[in-house]
Design a protein around this nucleic acid. Structure first.
Lengths: 120, 120
DNA sequence: ACAATACATGCCCATATTAGAATATGTCAA
DNA sequence: TTGACATATTCTAATATGGGCATGTATTGT
């Protein structure tokens, strides 16, 4: 029977931006850090998360380059590296023409229906 | 299935498009099904994956509305629902102005440097 | 009814993850 | 050095995942 299971259950959160960003909390953090850099403590207060939790999320984000870190005294300032979100944007953008096309078809169908109603 | 869970280790892949799309294989499937609908067997052949694996990925994608399914005889035709990818696109797009700004700063710094060199 | 085809689902399991509590590291100030 | 403050890491327990493989289920053809 099954001896070795080489199962990578699920890609590591640190494997790429897609996986890192899958976590809602991390998206919140990225949103918060987009405007300006912030020390960890402020993130904790603003987003009402536990400090270790924030640190761990920041670690993941840093590992995939989604945030940059800078030390100032005892504080660590983090800021979003928007550049690292681009691949995501571009992949999703690949589908833009398709959803536009879909909307067109919906519109066409709606118009066809309205014509049919007028015919009645 | 999760009504209330003690420690949700990680958000379910079916919890939203972000989580569903985190899996590379599922992104491949979405790419493949964007142009036109296909039966499962063709996905299996084209992407060289095991059939049960494909079925399971399709289930996840369907649960979050990323694909639509249509039965025709013994075949199930799937197609990408591009509309469901938009939230992702829009979230990522939120950061567009930031990465543009970053590029600007990089350019400015480069120019400043070149001026400094000329001064020497 | 029976076989064949096309998918879907169930099970096992090593792996990765999460929150939370406790603890460790690092930095400054007196 | 000692203490206070700011972050990071470690350890736990609970859970979900994805690949393989086996089995179920639905639909068609004979």
């Amino acid at each position: 029977m099954g001896m070795y299971c080489r199962g990578m259950a699920r890609a590591a959160t640190t494997s790429d931006a897609f996986n890192a960003v899958a976590e809602p909390r991390r998206r919140e953090i990225l949103n918060y850090l987009a405007l300006q850099e912030r020390p960890v403590g402020e993130i904790v207060d603003a987003l009402e998360m536990e400090q270790p939790s924030v640190s761990k999320h920041l670690r993941v984000l840093k590992d995939v380059g989604l945030v940059h870190a800078r030390r100032d005294g005892r504080q660590m300032f983090y800021r979003t590296n928007a550049e690292a979100i681009r691949p995501l944007y571009e992949w999703a953008g690949t589908f833009e023409r398709y959803w536009k096309h879909q909307l067109l078809r919906v519109k066409e169908r709606a118009e066809a229906k309205s014509v049919a109603v007028k015919k009645d």
